[in-house]
Design a protein around this nucleic acid. Sequence first.
DNA 1: CGGCGACAATAAGTCTGACTTTTAAGTCAC
DNA 2: GTGACTTAAAAGTCAGACTTATTGTCGCCG
Lengths: 233, 233
Amino acid sequence: MTAQVRGLHARVLESLGPAITGGAYPPGSVLRMDELSKEFEVSRSVMREAVRVLESMHLVESRRRVGVTVLPTPEWNVYDPQVIRWRLAGADRPRQLRSLTVLRSAVEPAAAGLAATHATAEQCAALTECAIGMVSHSRGRQLEGYLIHDIEFHRTILRASGNEMFARLGDVVAEVLTGRTHHQVMFEDPDPAAVTLHVKVAEAVRERDAERAQELTREITLGALEELDVLAP
Amino acid sequence: MTAQVRGLHARVLESLGPAITGGAYPPGSVLRMDELSKEFEVSRSVMREAVRVLESMHLVESRRRVGVTVLPTPEWNVYDPQVIRWRLAGADRPRQLRSLTVLRSAVEPAAAGLAATHATAEQCAALTECAIGMVSHSRGRQLEGYLIHDIEFHRTILRASGNEMFARLGDVVAEVLTGRTHHQVMFEDPDPAAVTLHVKVAEAVRERDAERAQELTREITLGALEELDVLAP
DNA sequence: CGGCGACAATAAGTCTGACTTTTAAGTCAC
DNA sequence: GTGACTTAAAAGTCAGACTTATTGTCGCCG
């Protein structure tokens, strides 16, 4: 699932990053380079590289004569896919899922509207194919197959919008959908209404009906929000 | 304006980062560590730290026996504030401004709607104050003063939404507004209609009218989009 | 002639130790 | 108490030696 780590510093990150976002070192905590390198049994140079990356995510700040300070949450680069993954794996997963879903409900309808006017023929075909895949996996505990097509559907919409900022949220949406499937309704089949909506969105985009694509996508994301309210109130 | 760089590796980044996002090293280019450290006259350890940060932004990928490869644009972490700043300073600034403004037009209305129900009394007061500041700087070439209040207004809306993903876009909006003021209409006074809309948004939020706050903010962002169409077609 | 496996060259990765620089904090005189 | 001065602690920098993964090549065999 996750790309295999390349290099020692990446392995340190995969351990230290989640520890910070998970609250093991609360904001204001001060870590020291040589203690860290002792703890993770790596040389200081490797440790420095890891800390530099955390610093670029605004998770920590390194100052001379002080040490490595954990920054307050609002400073964190919450759009960094790695940070998102770490936080979704941690304790405040529910709140995280909610704020990401709210973001989706703002962005995806707009993206769908743009996609209706910008999508290439290939992208239209891909959307239809995804929608078909969702339908055919919508009954009988085929959640994994359903998820794959669901993710690809939303990824395609975001990419087809032609806006790179929207396109880059494909990974975020994928994480959210995966999280939902794996941690909430693993046993139930997906909502039939949602499936139908996806099919209709594919239609609307194919027919270049921006208004309808936007409205239908809004319904999808609103449904996702309501689902969250029901399952994690 | 920009925070003074702390450390050598940061200085290297400030030079190498814009070079990459600016296209001086097109995607697929291969750089080599020791050549880079020669070029920037820093030790390899410093260079490695800089490359690690670029790697965490998905601007480059470092592989053994190959070197440091510049990744294709769609891979880039375009939500990283530093990447945004680098790109806005570079050649494709216009396209960048456009995609950021489209993002704004999706996010800010939703944020304003949420702000209407979540804003604290202090935040309502801050909004009103910003709006007043905008009005009083809206005539007679006081663009810098206007800009400060404009930025603070949008930042407050995003923060008051209560959604951390929205809140984190405050810096992005600030960059966009700054860019617009400094590179396009430096000589003209701001559009009076926009000023009025800001005042009305502050009102709507204060009166907890989510629907109106959202609609008015949509008008603001649509105005920003149209302005872009006129000035950079 | 084409594929496969061993080998060698290459560039990143890692570690270590010595040194420098910044700066928080303590100290002392006034 | 306030100021300037000193000290020490921690990150920052550098250089060099060594390790390891990867890739291209070359020769062998089918």
